[in-house]
Write a protein that binds this DNA or RNA. Structure first.
Length: 496
RNA sequence: GCUCCGGUAGUAUAGUCCGGUCAAGUAUGCGGGCCUCUCGAGCCCGAGACCCGGGUUCAAAUCCCGGCCGGAGCACCA
């Protein structure tokens, strides 16, 4: 146990400013879409560091845009994080703290750090890009207070007014140019209904939340880099402590879109079957494809670097780890693609017991063998007439004739003859028709849709697959690891 | 366009801060071999990289300058 801890510790680089026993991190999803592998990896980073040093981790939903947030997605993240093996210590929603945002807004106004602005969206945008203040910036505190009250009382409709922070209109960091911190949104919130019409913006909400949650380390992707300064400024005004920021590039995977917009478009065009299409990288997809949580965690420890260089991981890196996680626990069974009937005269009918795993540790399965077996077309062809082959765990065979539909041979029971190719087989009367979906890169290197991204192999499997539950792993020998899918008689290929 | 940030083998990284031990380590992938009643696992061997150009220095992957390439941000989204 101690040994293991040390090992984990060696894997992730040390965290700056970390105090043993007091590292507080957070999982900050916006519940506006399905969780994907990038969120899981980022979540894992936050969780693993908290585990490494000791401390707490928050699950905090960043749900302050009522128009984007949907109730169903909260659970997508809870389920996803839980599945990834992340256990959080506290949970809250930013939308739970509206009164707090209001109080602090008032305080900022009173201290001359915020003002109510009646400029239109377009004017705000233009002046910000030009680095120029608007007339409202110099309003008195009393006027601002009155306008703010008016906002809260519902005297203004959406777009008519906003509360802006007094920042630095000429800063090179444009986020600092008097950003809007509170605005009117006339849309119901999935959790709060119509109770509020004035909502905080991201930077304002997150600054306050990170401080009151006692977050010591913000580990996030680098599109937020420019916001550090702004968020620190807000906390400075409010006399709140700042966390340490560690920012890193997004985690992407070869040939796999991450943006929700892109995925939605693929779904709408009918190019993928839905959010759980096995070619996607949503959590539901990678589960369906057979990625196990342990593998994801080890991947995070071994391959994730908190650097700002662009990362596009090869799926092979994940597959290799996954294969090792799954190998010892996964039963072996026979699947024959492109099956051809092989008649072995005089073989008779009898039961055989085959090990479910090469180590023998997973027990046996029983098959009733008769004279007719299915074997793979390409195996027969490469062995050829007159050639010999070993049917694994069954018999040696001399092939007498081969045609497209039927082959014939002579069986010789007993131990394997050295040097023969060993192939899998399925008794004709024990065969079930199955298909295997093989997900590949959804996008070509140029970013366009890959027409060949989903291959389907048809064939027969031994009847034992009936006993597998949906979601169970199986290794089809000489084919690859697969997962029994929710679709009938279907398996999804994981990897070799 | 403006502002940031990056660039080590196919991929992901270690090394870069504090120049030499780096003719560059690891994993994966690839090639070959061994082993195995799977094309899986395991073992062994091999090929494969410091973006380019200058400069500083006895010495540069590491420091400086310029270029090229890539990414991000520039919302009353998060």
């Amino acid at each position: 146990m101690v040994e293991r801890r040390m090992e984990t510790r060696r894997k992730l680089p040390p965290l700056p400013n970390a105090v043993e026993g007091n590292v507080v991190t957070r999982l900050p999803p916006e519940p506006s879409g399905y969780m994907h592998i990038g969120h899981a990896l980022s979540g894992l980073v936050n969780y693993l560091y908290k585990e490494m040093y000791g401390g707490k981790v928050w699950l905090r939903f960043e749900d302050t845009d009522p128009r984007k947030v949907r109730a169903e997605y909260y659970d997508s993240y809870r389920d996803g994080y839980r599945w990834a093996g992340i256990r959080w210590d506290y949970e809250k929603n930013n939308s739970d703290d509206m009164e707090l945002f209001y109080q602090n807004a008032k305080r900022l106004i009173e201290e001359g750090k915020a003002y109510a602005c009646n400029c239109s969206r377009e004017v705000v945008r233009r002046l910000r890009s030009e680095g120029l203040p608007c007339v409202h910036r110099s309003q008195t505190v009393d006027v601002n207070l009155e306008l703010w009250d008016g906002m809260l009382e519902g005297r203004y409709s959406e777009g008519e007014i906003s509360l802006r922070l007094v920042g630095d209109m000429s800063s090179a960091n444009t986020t600092l140019r008097d950003p809007v911190i509170m605005r009117v949104v006339e849309a119901p919130h999935p959790l709060k209904g119509e109770r509020y019409r004035v909502w905080p913006t991201y930077d304002y909400a997150v600054s306050i939340e990170d401080a009151i949650c006692g977050v010591t380390h913000v580990l996030r992707t680098s599109e937020f880099m420019l916001r550090d300064e702004l968020q620190n400024l807000i906390r400075g005004y409010l006399h709140m402590p700042n966390p340490t920021f560690v920012e890193y590039e997004r985690f992407e995977f070869e040939g796999t879109p991450v943006s929700r917009r892109e995925i939605r478009s693929l779904i709408e065009r009918g190019l993928v079957s839905g959010w759980d299409d096995p070619r996607l990288a949503t959590i539901v997809s990678i589960r369906r494809r057979g990625i196990v949580p342990k593998a994801l965690k080890e991947f995070a420890e071994r391959y994730v670097a908190l650097t700002q260089s662009r990362k596009v991981y090869s799926w092979d890196l994940l597959y290799a780890i996954n294969r090792k996680c799954v190998d010892d626990l996964t039963p072996r069974m026979f699947f024959v693609k492109d099956p051809v009937k092989l008649k072995l005269e005089g073989l008779g009918e009898f039961d055989v017991e085959l090990p479910l795993h090469p180590t023998g540790r997973l027990g046996q399965r029983r098959l009733r063998v008769s004279e007719e077996l299915y074997v793979q077309q390409d195996d027969l062809r490469s062995i050829g007439e007159g050639g010999k082959v070993r049917l694994k765990h069954l018999c040696n065979v001399t092939l007498r004739s081969i045609s497209d539909k039927l082959a014939e041979g002579a069986a010789e029971l007993g131990p394997p003859e050295p040097g023969l190719r060993v192939i899998q087989w399925v008794p004709v009367n024990e065969a079930v028709d199955v298909r295997v979906l093989i997900p590949g890169p959804l996008l070509k290197p140029d970013g366009t849709f890959n027409e060949l991204s989903l291959q389907v192999e048809g064939g027969v499997a031994e009847r034992s697959v009936d006993s597998l539950e949906v979601g169970a792993h199986v290794q089809f020998e000489r084919f690859g690891y697969c997962v029994k899918d929710k679709l009938p008689m279907t398996f999804v290929y994981s990897h070799r």
